[in-house]
């Protein structure tokens, strides 16, 4: 038999990679966050608590993340269910589904900017021509619509990410379960709620977790499409941190904001994991 110690050897590559590339910079960042112009101290954190712009960016980030996430999970699940059915040419369709995820985000963001242009954009043109809107809409010009446009662009791009994770999850559900349920007289809807959803839960959790983290750190899309405007209404935490480092040349304060953002995400992750465990125990 192998020794217990030997089993831990399997973790070494990950430990090296994460230690070197992730945790070392993060520790440096933590150290930096206590460095201010007047020496070491909590100055950066004290400043953050009075920073209205930080509060606004955190709010914007939360709104963006929640809306994107909800839409992506619903659409991603629907997409995964569709491409899980077997039909001819399924392979090609699966590849096509992934294309939005594969296009470079900064470039697609430029494309979306034109799609949402007021006078000559397709989004405005179609609604106007079909009579759904009485006049052309300047999508990126008002806070609410600008946020909506960003969410749409983000959902379009990242739904495949969710779909493919869920698809792999669907593939690992044994067919025999469905057959047994069918024999018991369960209809498709019932089967979905009795079998698919519960068995898919770990994968849904994965998708929510990683997409949530990505959405919280969104940068490219917003930087290109609105720069955080109008009136700062779409500025997210990543944009703000980027500006503090590279615009205001104040890495110490940026580091403090990074740690704060991290603690918030950590708290959310902990809550999700507690909720998940409770559900698990109930089930």
């Amino acid at each position: 038999m192998d020794s217990v110690l030997k089993r831990y050897l399997f973790l070494i590559p990950v430990a090296i990679l994460l230690g070197l590339i992730v945790f070392y910079p993060v520790l440096r960042c933590a150290g930096l966050s206590f460095t201010t112009h007047d020496g070491l101290g909590f100055g950066n954190y004290a400043r953050a608590f009075g920073d209205a712009r930080l509060a606004a960016t955190l709010w914007n980030t939360t709104v963006f993340t929640v809306f994107s996430l909800v839409l992506e999970i619903i659409l991603g699940l629907a997409l995964a269910l569709c491409i899980n059915v077997s039909f001819r040419g399924r392979g090609i369709v699966r590849a096509i589904v992934l294309i939005p995820w594969a296009l470079p985000p900064a470039v697609m963001a430029l494309g979306w900017t034109w799609i949402f242009n007021d006078v000559y954009g397709v989004a405005s043109d179609i609604l106007y021509r079909t009579g759904l809107a009485s006049e052309k809409i300047a999508w990126l010009a008002t806070p609410g619509k600008a946020m909506l446009s960003l969410v749409i662009a983000d959902v379009w791009k990242t739904t495949p990410f969710v779909a493919i994770i869920l698809l792999a999850g669907l593939q690992s559900i044994p067919k025999s379960l469905y057959e047994a349920a069918a024999i018991d007289g369960a209809g498709p809807v019932r089967r979905f709620f009795m079998i698919t959803l519960p068995l898919l839960r770990p994968h849904l959790l994965l998708a929510v977790l990683f997409r949530g983290i990505q959405a919280f750190g969104v940068f490219d899309l917003i930087w290109v499409m609105t720069r955080g405007g109008p009136a700062g209404s779409t500025e997210t935490i990543s944009l703000y941190i980027y500006r503090i480092i590279y615009g205001y040349l104040n890495p110490g304060y940026a580091a403090a904001l990074t740690i704060i953002a991290f603690l918030i995400l950590l708290a959310v992750a902990v809550i999700i994991s507690i909720l998940n465990r409770r559900q698990h125990e109930l089930a």
């Binding site: 992730v22 945790f23 993060v26 960042c29 990683f210 750190g217 940068f219 935490i237 991290f262």
Partner: peptide
């Protein structure tokens, strides 16, 4: 390790 925005890593 996944909870930090990518921008943080750039300088280090």
């Amino acid at each position: 390790g996944a909870l930090f925005p990518q921008i943080v890593y750039l300088l280090p």
